[in-house]
Amino acid sequence: MIIVSTDGSCLRNPGGAIGWAWVNHTGPSQSGGEPSGTNQVAELRAVLEAIRAHPGSEPMVIESDSQYAIKCASEWVSGWKRKGWRTASGEPVKNIDLVRGIDEALGERPGPVRFRWVRGHVGNHYNEEADKLAGEAARAVAAGAPAPAPVASVTGAETPAKTVSRAKSVARTVTRVERPTARAAAAAQPALFDLPAPDDSLTLF
Rank of each mutant, 00 (worst) to 15 (best):
V93M: 01
V4F: 02
S64Q: 03
I62K: 08
D103M: 03
A137D: 08
D200V: 11
G15D: 12
D200A: 14
G101F: 01
R114Y: 07
G32Q: 05
Q30I: 05
W76I: 04
K162G: 15
R86G: 03
P28M: 12
R82V: 12
N24W: 09
E129R: 14
W117H: 14
P180K: 05
D7V: 06
I18D: 00
I96K: 13
G135R: 15
S165T: 13
P198S: 07
T26S: 14
V61L: 15
R86A: 10
W85M: 12
V93E: 00
D194T: 12
S57T: 11
P14M: 08
L44H: 08
D97S: 15
L98H: 05
N124H: 13
D200R: 14
L195V: 13
G15W: 07
D194R: 10
I70D: 00
P150C: 11
V177S: 15
P35L: 08
D103P: 02
E158F: 04
W80E: 03
T26C: 10
P148T: 09
T159L: 09
T175L: 11
A137L: 10
C72Q: 08
A197H: 10
A130S: 13
F193L: 09
S74Y: 08
D7Q: 06
D131G: 06
G107D: 06
P196F: 08
G144F: 07
T87Y: 13
L98N: 06
V118C: 10
K94S: 14
